[in-house]
């Protein structure tokens, strides 16, 4: 379950980041369309968010710092939900700019409820990842970053393979 959530979120973040990254002007424009941030801050988000989404997506795929990545993804979703809800409440007609795009659209084409529902689902997945990391096939396990030793499963044996240099045999 954690693994599925991890990979699902990773796919979403990678696609979202990739669709935005080639066109910083458009990305900034999408952020500005929300009219929530002052010009400078909108630019920072517009430039930074695409690459940030991609990096978090990669961390989720490989299962590195899984809990932190899950928490950050959850926070991102909360921010997106707030942004979309506030655009909706203020009667703006904008494209959410979630996967590229963005900017003003015809009022009949807005999709606020769908977008919020979708992001709530992503938020739930992120919460799951944050609560039960790291799932299968995770670098966290290989590197012994699990943190707790009580739910080790085959953690200990992995550990010995991963760090043979830690016990010099006499």
């Amino acid at each position: 379950m954690t693994t599925a959530a991890r990979l699902g979120l990773a796919a979403v973040l990678l696609i979202a980041g990739w669709d935005k990254i080639g066109a910083p002007a458009r990305s900034v424009m999408a952020v500005e369309a929300y009219q929530l941030l002052p010009k400078g801050a909108a630019e920072i988000v517009g430039y930074g968010l695409p690459i940030f989404e991609i990096v978090i997506g990669v961390l989720l795929i490989v299962g590195l710092l899984t809990r932190l990545a899950g928490i950050v993804t959850g926070l991102l979703m909360v921010a997106f939900i707030i942004g979309v809800a506030s655009a909706w409440a203020r009667g703006l007609s904008i494209d959410c700019g979630c996967f590229g795009g963005g900017g003003q659209i015809d009022p009949s084409q807005t999709q606020y409820p769908q977008t919020i529902l979708r992001d709530v689902a992503f938020l739930a997945m992120a919460a799951w990842v944050a609560v039960k990391p790291p799932g299968k096939l995770a670098l966290d396990t290989v590197l012994g970053l699990g943190g707790r030793s009580d739910d080790d499963r085959d953690d200990t044996s992995d550990d010995d393979h991963a760090a043979p240099d830690a016990d010099p045999k006499e």
């Binding site: 910083p24 430039y47 690459i51 990096v55």
Partner: peptide, 10 residues
Amino acid sequence: IGFYMARKGN
């Protein structure tokens, strides 16, 4: 780096 390149592309 991504941020820097985004700024440059803009």
